[in-house]
Simulated scan of single mutants.
Amino acid sequence: MHTHAHSNAEQPPTPELAGLLRAEADRIQQRVECLSRNRDAILAYLAVVEASQKPES
């Protein structure tokens, strides 16, 4: 869902619209946090795998 909050910048949103926008922002934040956790897990995995593949000195 793409919203264009600036389209009616002159008029404040109705309470209903404000609630919908806040809920959408919350859902986006949850997705961002999930993606960040997934990225961190992948990078941690790669660090372990790559460290185990280095020849010992």
Results as ranks from 00 to 15, higher is better:
R39W: 05
V49T: 12
L20M: 12
E33F: 03
I28P: 00
V32D: 06
Q29A: 13
E50G: 01
R27E: 07
R39I: 10
A47F: 04
E24D: 12
E24G: 04
L17F: 07
L17H: 05
C34T: 12
E16V: 14
Q30A: 15
D26A: 15
R31H: 10
V48P: 00
N38P: 00
R39C: 08
T14K: 06
V32C: 03
R27Q: 13
R39A: 08
V49Q: 13
R37S: 11
P13R: 01
I42Q: 10
L20E: 02
G19L: 01
L17D: 10
S36R: 14
R22T: 13
P15R: 04
I28R: 10
L21F: 08
P13W: 06
D40L: 03
A23R: 11
L21A: 02
E24F: 03
R22P: 00
T14Y: 07
D40W: 01
A41K: 07
A47D: 07
D26W: 02
L35Y: 06
E24S: 10
C34M: 09
Q30R: 14
L46I: 05
Q30F: 02
A18I: 04
L46F: 06
I42T: 11
E33L: 09
I42F: 08
T14F: 07
P13G: 08
V49A: 15
A41Q: 13
Q29W: 03
R22V: 09
V32S: 04
R22L: 13
R39M: 09
A41S: 12
A44V: 03
I42S: 05
Y45G: 01
P13S: 09
L21K: 01
L46M: 12
A47G: 02
S36A: 12
L35F: 05
E50P: 00
Q29K: 11
E50M: 08
A23Y: 04
A18G: 06
I28N: 04
L35T: 02
L46C: 11
E16K: 13
N38K: 11
S36H: 06
L35H: 08
E16D: 13
A44Y: 01
E33Q: 15
A25Y: 05
Y45M: 03
V48W: 01
V32F: 06
E50L: 11
D40E: 14
R27S: 09
V48L: 09
R22E: 15
E24C: 02
D26C: 02
A44K: 11
P15V: 03
A47L: 06
T14L: 07
R22W: 06
L35V: 01
L35N: 12
G19Y: 02
Q29T: 09
L17R: 15
P13N: 07
P13E: 05
S36D: 13
I42Y: 08
